[in-house]
């Protein structure tokens, strides 16, 4: 089986990103490369260009990477990384953090391609929680 699409969780908080990664692994996507870029390099709340760049590289197993940002400067910093390192197979998605990451991870675990995984994350916005 080919390696699944990778996922990068970008958050202002290292714990938030790590907690979400734990949740994704529990729900059945331990075969999916999920990397986190949470907080600043010195452990504060914020976002880090270098952590995002490293996470994208680590999540990339040849079939593309979807970046799920929490909000605000996570989006802006990820955008800057992608502007400096433009690649057609790394996509920043506009999706709710928890639901989008979960839909992306489950979809990736089925061997779906990059655009299907990105779409699953984006469509998460339109699914009512209950």
């Amino acid at each position: 089986m080919t390696q699944s699409v990778g996922i990068v969780l970008v958050s202002h908080s290292a714990q938030l990103a790590a907690g979400l990664r734990d949740l994704l692994a529990q729900i059945g996507s331990d075969s999916v490369p999920v990397q986190v870029a949470g907080g600043t390099e010195d452990g504060r709340i914020g976002t880090s260009y270098d952590l995002i760049l490293k996470a994208v590289s680590a999540a990339d197993h040849g079939t593309g990477v979807v970046i799920v940002p929490d909000l605000g400067s996570s989006v802006l910093t990820a955008r800057t990384v992608l502007e400096d390192h433009p690649r057609p197979d790394v996509l920043l998605v506009d999706a709710p953090f928890v639901e989008g990451a979960l839909a992306a991870a489950i979809t990736a675990s089925t061997g779906a391609d990059l655009s299907t995984v990105a779409t699953a994350a984006q469509e998460a916005r339109h699914v009512p929680k209950f």
Partner: peptide, 11 residues
């Protein structure tokens, strides 16, 4: 059923 969120949304 391919959509995990929709399935959870069934409640």
């Amino acid at each position: 059923p391919a959509g995990i969120l929709a399935v959870m949304g069934l409640g």
